[in-house]
Design a binder for these strands. Structure first.
Lengths: 227, 227
DNA sequence: TTTCATTTTTGATAAAAGTCAAAGTATGGC
DNA sequence: GCCATACTTTGACTTTTATCAAAAATGAAA
């Protein structure tokens, strides 16, 4: 399966991580501070989301496991048929995961912005070929970790173990809400729901992508917006 | 959120647990064997799904944590607004989780048959009022466990810890597939998809419920079936 | 078996969303 | 700043699905 993390249910956490994302963008002039800024967002993420402390030793272990990667706009991280190796944490930029059906129509399953996680879990976990594409909507910087490395960290760092527990729950909560929205609301209601819960998506993603996320055609979204 | 477990991705496991479900039904004449038969399905479930052994001591701990409950047709396990206390494992029968919108329309989020798990995870995990109703579609027998007890078992029994890891993943995989189906397929395609992946639902649930699960009206489902 | 309630089907019509084509509008790469 | 490309909007029309009403079919209880 595919999943964007939304551990941003607790509002306070989201806001803190997002402010750090901005910080990491503003200092990305030198390689060294940039690196630090990138990992700092991740460390703060673990610290804010769980109640466990994170020592500088822990930080070192995390730094070794998570590889920094820069991707340009439209660059693929995963293509359909690949066996996906990594789970991604977005430092800045935006990712999207989507499928393409036999008619060539795209369906956006999830977006990920700064401080969100993104992975084709089914592929990563079961080591089967991905059903989805993951690509960068904007120039982005991400941290990649393999499930094996993450599992190894889990045994050493309680904050990571706790994170994984909460993360999986959060994915389940988020996806279930989306099922509910998809099966019980019409196009207009889904649009209003997205406006309410993810107004930032409208700043960051094209109408085409938003329409695809809502499961409607761009023309229909355009008409909804006119009202 | 709400989630039906579908740890039945590995086909072999599903088939073994389902055969046990039938067994437990056939021996439900005396209280003692019935009890044993019920728990046996759960033990086998843990054994088949993970590679860790389960000692008789472990079985005793599990027996203490999971409470057997019988529910009659249409009986509610959770009502909207309740703070849900338990995670359920279905021994026999069928459960359904659904929402009711302001117009009184129901939307079935998930079904659970023998060997499946059912819970309003959001409510159970965050101790917030449930958005959903869970009720029995048929006379059913279920095992209930609180998240706290399950967490306690996790520390003592590796098979349980492994189960929880895999279970959460599985919920995520299943729900993600459902999102994909919901946003990228039309009514006919969703119907065909359900026929292919869950033909048993058509034996166990009314057309009304199936339609609701597919996000269409009963009249539309009836017309699709005519083809 | 008969009866009553519920579920499913059918038909006519309405509303929602999709399709196709074309005209505007942005915008990112040079 | 310009151009080519991609994105968004608009209009006319089609298809899909919902709605409403009523008739069959089913099935559970007396």
């Amino acid at each position: 399966m595919a999943a964007q993390s939304t551990l941003n249910d607790p509002t306070a956490v989201t806001e803190r991580t997002e402010s750090h994302a901005i910080e990491s963008v503003s200092i990305r002039s030198t390689v060294e501070t940039h690196r630090d800024g990138s990992y700092k967002l991740l460390f703060d993420y673990f610290r804010n989301y769980t109640k466990f402390p994170l020592s500088s030793t822990d930080e070192g272990l995390i730094r070794d496991a998570f590889k920094l990667k820069k991707v340009r706009r439209r660059q693929f991280l995963v293509q359909e048929g690949d066996v996906s190796k990594y789970i991604c944490f977005v430092i800045f930029g935006a990712l999207r995961i989507y499928s393409v059906n036999e008619r060539g129509q795209e369906a956006v399953v999830a977006f990920a912005l700064e401080g969100n996680w993104m992975s084709d879990w089914e592929s990563v976990v079961t080591q089967t070929p991905a059903r989805y594409y993951i690509d960068a909507v904007d120039h982005s910087e991400i941290l990649q970790v393999s499930p094996a490395e993450l599992h190894a960290l889990e045994a050493k760092i309680p904050a990571i173990a706790e994170f994984l527990r909460l993360e999986q729950r959060s994915v389940a909560v988020t996806t279930q809400k989306r099922i509910h929205t998809a099966i019980s609301m019409n196009a207009e209601e889904r649009y209003q729901d997205l406006l309410e819960h993810h107004p930032e998506y409208f700043q960051r993603f094209s109408q085409n992508m938003i329409a695809s996320y809502l499961g409607i055609k761009p023309e229909t979204l355009s008409r909804l917006r006119k009202r």
